[in-house]
């Protein structure tokens, strides 16, 4: 473990938190103001009656938008831009969707089991046309369990950085460098959890989320490849290029 001073940890918390808030796509206050806007039954039905390829394309666009904000977040993480370009790409390719899923708890209304999507709050039934009910319900369960941890913005920021800096991703060239950054981030996360007086094993609960995130992302890849097998031209011509780069 690297030796890091308290002042250094405080600085890391501050920088990561600022980066998170500058790139989080929606402010909590904005979302709070929109929380009453739920899709009406006829709007839900209109999403459900879309052809699968249209709904897939819409979701790919929304995911890609969210990922662009995660890339900006990554660039502002202390030390990320000092890594070699290969490793920056490897970490984003493997971790950007995981961070989107972590950030989703900010857009999630646990009481109504709905997520902010395409301008209003949507329940799992809105995504029926995708044809991946199991994945959607797992994503909603994940968001709900993340919400139940009631993470503050600085805790969420550090957990997101911790996920992005996973040193066990395949194809890293400077694994040790990434490992150092991840360990420092974990110390800062631990530091902030203690400072926020959380003694309910929050760090262990967060560690458990790592494997859940990996499983969700691999299931996304499986569902995408099944979709692509049926609609190869739609993916090739209509999906956002960044989405194809990351998941192709």
């Amino acid at each position: 473990c690297p030796t890091v001073s308290m002042a250094e940890l405080d600085h890391l918390v501050q920088v990561t938190s600022k980066s998170h808030l500058e790139t989080c796509q929606y402010l909590r206050e904005e979302l709070h103001q929109m929380s009453w806007q739920k899709f009406l039954q006829d709007e839900v039905e209109s999403y459900q009656s879309k052809p699968p390829e249209v709904m897939w394309q819409l979701c790919a666009v929304k995911i890609t938008e969210a990922i662009q904000y995660v890339v900006e977040f990554a660039k502002r993480i202390d030390g990320f831009m000092d890594l070699c370009q290969n490793d920056q790409i490897v970490l984003l390719k493997a971790g950007s969707l995981e961070v989107v899923l972590v950030r989703m708890c900010r857009l999630f209304d646990s009481q109504n089991n709905s997520v902010y999507f395409d301008g209003k709050f949507a329940g799992p039934d809105v995504f029926k046309a995708l044809g991946c009910d199991d994945l959607i319900s797992s994503v909603f369960d994940f968001a709900k369990s993340m919400c139940s941890l009631h993470l503050s913005e600085d805790e969420l920021a550090l957990f997101s950085a911790f996920i992005l800096l996973s040193a066990d991703r395949s194809w890293l060239q400077e694994k040790l460098q990434v490992e150092k950054l991840q360990q420092k981030t974990e110390l800062a996360l631990q530091h902030v959890l203690q400072k926020n007086q959380r003694e309910d094993g929050a760090l262990n609960k967060l560690r458990c989320k790592v494997s859940a995130l990996r499983s969700l992302c691999s299931r996304h890849a499986e569902n995408l490849s099944a979709f692509r097998a049926v609609y190869p031209d739609i993916v090739r011509t209509h999906f956002p290029p960044l989405y194809k780069e990351l998941f192709g």
Binding site: E72, K75, Q85, K93, E245
Partner: peptide
């Protein structure tokens, strides 16, 4: 590099 053209581009753009 060609395979991740857009990601490279996004990484190289200066942070606004």
């Amino acid at each position: 590099k060609e395979k991740h053209k857009i990601l490279h581009q996004l990484l190289q753009n200066s942070t606004s």
